[in-house]
């Protein structure tokens, strides 16, 4: 057995970086699905955000303006989704898939002429002495702002969903929209707001790809990350804490297999890269076997709501 000669600090650091876009997009989609809407357009919103982010960041020279516009780009596409599915009652699955395709094309158009141009990138907070902790310090406390924003967002989403009245209403809308409507809650407005939030988070996730992780633009560069985010929501059983774990697991598996290969550790590459998906399938099976309220999908997920129907 060869000694595994890995740079663990760099590995931990890269887990945080690799998992951040998954986490941001998955948290957004988690709120959307908790409100009873299935948005398969995450990939499209993500890549729209990625393109908007880098174009604005390069033009203004400010990565923060880039992140803001990445979120706005995702939010914009989210509002289109909301208009179509909530306003015009179109089918959620078809609309989401359509917007993913639209986003892929639209982003390529938007970022034409920016292919391969390096983006200005952001720094991180100065966490002082924490950075000097051996191994963990440089890995955990010397990251960029958005990594910490993602962790705060996980906490924030949990607090909102389970500790506020508004979060309770949002969940009620997702579990039984007719009942929520009968109680006088505004089902459609709640859902539109949730979709807007989900779109902005997906856009932010895309911006993280073009402004931190790569950091430059190439057509189609999300390459399925939005779909992984959707899988993580299911994996996490629609709970923010578990979604965070899921993002780390998916990101960790990806970061680990690349590093094991680079360190010339003989590993079955194919097995490691498909392991998160295998675990997701296993979790799905476990959920459907148990069918307990805590683990199952929101009852109205993907169902259209018509007042008075």
């Amino acid at each position: 057995m060869p000694v595994i000669d890995l740079n663990w600090t760099a590995f931990l650091a890269s887990v945080l970086v690799v998992s951040t876009p998954f986490l941001l997009a998955a948290l957004g989609e988690l709120v959307v699905e908790r409100a009873g809407v299935l948005n398969l357009g995450v990939e499209g919103m993500m890549i729209t955000g990625a393109a908007a982010g880098i174009v604005v960041a390069i033009e203004t020279g400010s990565p923060w303006a880039g992140f803001l516009c990445a979120a706005l780009g995702g939010l914009g596409l989210g509002l289109v989704f909301a208009l179509l599915t909530q306003g015009l009652q179109s089918n959620q699955v078809a609309t989401g898939l359509g917007l993913t395709l639209f986003g892929l094309g639209f982003s390529a158009l938007l970022a034409q002429g920016y292919v391969g141009v390096p983006a200005p990138t952001i720094g991180g907070p100065d966490l002082g002495p924490l950075r000097d902790v051996p191994i963990l310090g440089p890995a955990l406390f010397a990251r960029d702002w958005v990594v910490y924003l993602g962790l705060l967002a996980a906490l924030g989403v949990w607090l909102y969903l389970f500790r506020t009245r508004s979060g309770l209403i949002l969940r009620a809308v997702g579990e039984g929209h007719d009942a929520a409507h009968a109680l006088g809650y505004r089902v459609r407005a709640t859902r539109v707001a949730a979709i807007a939030f989900g779109g902005a988070m997906a856009g932010l996730a895309g911006g993280y790809l073009t402004l931190v992780r790569v950091p430059s633009w190439t057509d189609g560069m999300t390459a399925g990350a939005g779909w992984i985010a959707l899988a993580i929501v299911v994996f996490g059983g629609w709970r923010p804490g578990r979604v965070l774990l899921g993002a780390w697991l998916f990101g960790g598996a990806q970061a680990l297999q690349l590093r094991l290969q680079a360190a010339q550790v003989p590993v079955p590459v194919e097995l490691l890269s498909m392991s998160p998906y295998l675990i997701t399938i296993a979790v799905l099976v476990a959920i459907s076997v148990r069918r307990r309220a805590g683990g199952a999908a929101p009852a109205c997920l993907g169902q259209p709501f018509r007042a008075g129907a």
Binding site: L209, S216, T218, Q254, L258
Partner: peptide
Amino acid sequence: FDPAQEADAARAL
């Protein structure tokens, strides 16, 4: 083609 993974691979190396 997967820019994010390609970039990560370069960093791992």
